[in-house]
Design a protein around this nucleic acid. Structure first.
Lengths: 403, 403
DNA sequence: CCGAGTAATGTTTACGTAAACATGATCCCG
DNA sequence: CGGGATCATGTTTACGTAAACATTACTCGG
């Protein structure tokens, strides 16, 4: 009943720690002995469901301790808590027999270091905060996953704060919360405009890395090389013989979208080609569909570069519905290389983004900052892209005017 | 009551945490007065990039204080640190003038409560751990997002541990790590078989909720009502007049996949229809494509239920390539209702999963456990699904035998 | 066989917060 | 106008850990 305990000690009547410390067993006696023969304890090595399920109410003495501390281990092992600390942290200078005894006591009591106390002591939390707008986009979730994986490999956990509605206030709030949370650094995966006027205030010593932004003058930025990816897409189409390339953009507020659009335009201009009006999209398949409907009515249009794969999907459906074949009459290129894109009809030629690498570099940068104790200089670290050529692109139909 | 706020007290225009401490103004003088006229401080309201950028190493005095503690605020405000604590937590019994003074001092120093100390004191971390296999699937990432959002609304942060390779060892390791991390509860989004023989040992008082599993006899489980969703899909096809329904399964190791397959079979049997052999898939569009190729060779096949939308996508492509029209000759139903599915060719009829609701209920359960201080009884909380009828389903071709 | 040196372990203390208890001032009512 | 009640605030202490310092016990060279 009572039982299960959390830290909310009291309430269950427990004298919590009331029963006093009382360090009998002065070490006057024999600190040695080494005989860790306490195998006959009643709790089996591994109950089916783990302690989490049974809460702890079944501890015989009735006087269950909520949390096992070093002092408890020390008492059982007949040593000082400092020795337990040394064993716990693998410090040298503990004789083998003592170490064994301590380890046995730890096992028996199920000791776990208390990370809060540790963090308090060290002023470090071994945690990286991640602020992001949405996990719904493939890119973000893959990036986060990579961040989490690499952080874990380095002994860091990640704490996530999603921002439901992307306003500057909410961004500010998220940073503020991060400042109060136990994090050593923050990785922000947010659109640039949200950082524009926000003056980020974090506790000193908390470092920041930003993804998806051109704030390279103020922060350490890691990002996919958007411009180069877009350039590759456009060049690919031009090289196939298309006279020009139309473009369905992402939302105006997105840095990545702007960047891709800018590169699209620049690449066309460099090649001396006409620049058709950009069709506005918002990343959604729906907006791509709308753009596709419009484009289907443009007889001169033989090639389209969609700023992401989902819009390309909508585009493909619209073109299909309007009877314009892909790639026979119109070629389509996307951006992202989401796993599904290879199974679109037809399989989509698209720009591959290495999200895992973006995540990896974020973690690397952040850890470098933490370890050096100082921010790395602002700057931008660009991850290269590669073009995945599949079946949605081909030379323009013969009837189309060659350049 | 008052001051719901958790930590996010006033962060107004904080001068970050000004450089330098400098505790003049001993409180020997007049602790009263309320004249908070310290407007003339030198640090500007908001530096462009925030303290995070300067890392702290450039602080003149050389020996900068990393963290501003209550004691610092107390000294500046000329009160005891306990009073600062009271103000910080919105406790009553602080006279207005004093409160103002403390708040001013907080602002001036850029005080932030230290969550580690707080956690140590309370034995609570206000953090929920999430263990999951992969963020790559739409379902998982959307669930996590919902969890994070709702947790944040309740003042909880979430800590993520992804498992790269799904072995029981890794799962055990993740739980162990969680046990050492500062979390009050754990939500595990993993396939059932991974929990099978793992005896989860978490510190007492850390609660567990499981998603995507039928461990309802041992844990609190929250899940989409897989069986009912599958039943709806199959019934829909039968109601359209199809004699039977083929099925492309998810991986054998997946509980959700098993559950959908079981319901598919049961629904057919209930209706007295023949049960065709199930085609094995692994959630990927690629496996759906392979299944589609096989199915295209089955003349009797007029209806297929794919265990997820991505496999349905592959299926659609394969059928399209083989010249079998959808829904003219073959009807296809998916599962998940990923955003793109409305833009497949043709738009996919599919079973909608309410991932957000799953996340919400997870958080609700976990918080209830934390607050009650005891694990809720094992059991399963099923979130309903709904069928989204789009254009990939229709009555069977006239030539097909009616039931 | 003694004393310096070192290895093993114990004791004290600080980290930042907040509950519990203590103190001093003010107020109100008989 | 005295004494208890109330209020605002201060002081002590514990939370769990680990660095810094202290204390033993043992080793080894002269």
């Amino acid at each position: 009943m009572e039982a299960v305990n959390r830290g909310d000690r009291e309430q269950t009547g427990t004298p919590t720690n009331g029963d006093v410390r009382r360090d009998d067993r002065g070490q006057a006696g024999t600190p040695v002995g080494g005989n860790a023969q306490r195998g006959d304890r009643e709790h089996p090595g591994s109950p089916i469901s783990g302690s989490a399920q049974r809460g702890g109410s079944d501890i015989p003495g009735g006087r269950r301790k909520q949390r096992v501390s070093m002092a408890d281990v020390a008492k059982l092992a007949g040593v000082s808590s400092q020795t337990v600390s040394r064993v716990s942290n693998g410090h040298p200078g503990v004789i083998d027999s003592t170490r064994e005894q301590v380890l046995a006591a730890m096992r028996e009591l199920g000791y776990r270091p208390n990370s809060a106390a540790r963090a308090l002591r060290y002023g470090q939390f071994n945690t990286i905060g991640v602020i992001l707008f949405s996990l719904a986009s493939t890119g973000n979730s893959r990036t986060v996953e990579a961040i989490a994986t690499h952080a874990a490999a380095e002994g860091y956990a990640i704490t996530l704060i999603p921002i439901d509605v992307p306003t500057q206030d909410n961004v500010l709030g998220a940073f503020t919360r991060m400042g109060e949370l136990a994090v050593d650094a923050v990785i922000a995966i947010i659109e640039i405009y949200l950082l524009d006027t926000v003056s980020v205030t974090l506790p000193p010593g908390v470092h920041v890395v930003v993804v998806d932004s051109d704030a390279g003058d103020r922060y350490s930025v890691v990002d996919t090389n958007q411009a180069d990816g877009a350039r590759q897409a456009v060049r690919h189409l031009l090289d196939l013989g298309h006279r020009t390339v139309w473009h369905v953009t992402g939302p105006r507020t997105s840095y990545a979208a702007q960047s891709r659009a800018r590169a699209w335009r620049a690449t066309l201009e460099e090649a001396g080609r006409p620049v058709p009006p950009a069709l506005p999209g918002d990343w959604s398949a729906e907006s791509g569909y709308a753009a596709g409907l419009a484009l289907a009515g443009e007889p001169g249009c033989t090639a389209v570069f969609a700023a992401n794969d989902q819009m390309a999907l909508g585009l493909l459906r619209a073109l299909h519905e309007r009877g314009r074949t892909v790639p026979g009459e119109v070629s389509v290129v996307g951006f992202d290389d989401i796993p599904d894109s290879a199974y679109f009809v037809p399989p989509l030629t698209t720009v591959h983004q290495d999200f895992a690498e973006v995540g990896r570099r974020c973690v690397r940068q952040v850890l470098a900052q933490i370890r050096d104790g100082k921010s790395s200089p602002p700057g931008t670290d660009l991850v290269p892209t590669s073009l995945m050529v599949r079946r949605s692109t081909a030379p323009p139909p013969a009837s189309a005017p060659a350049p």
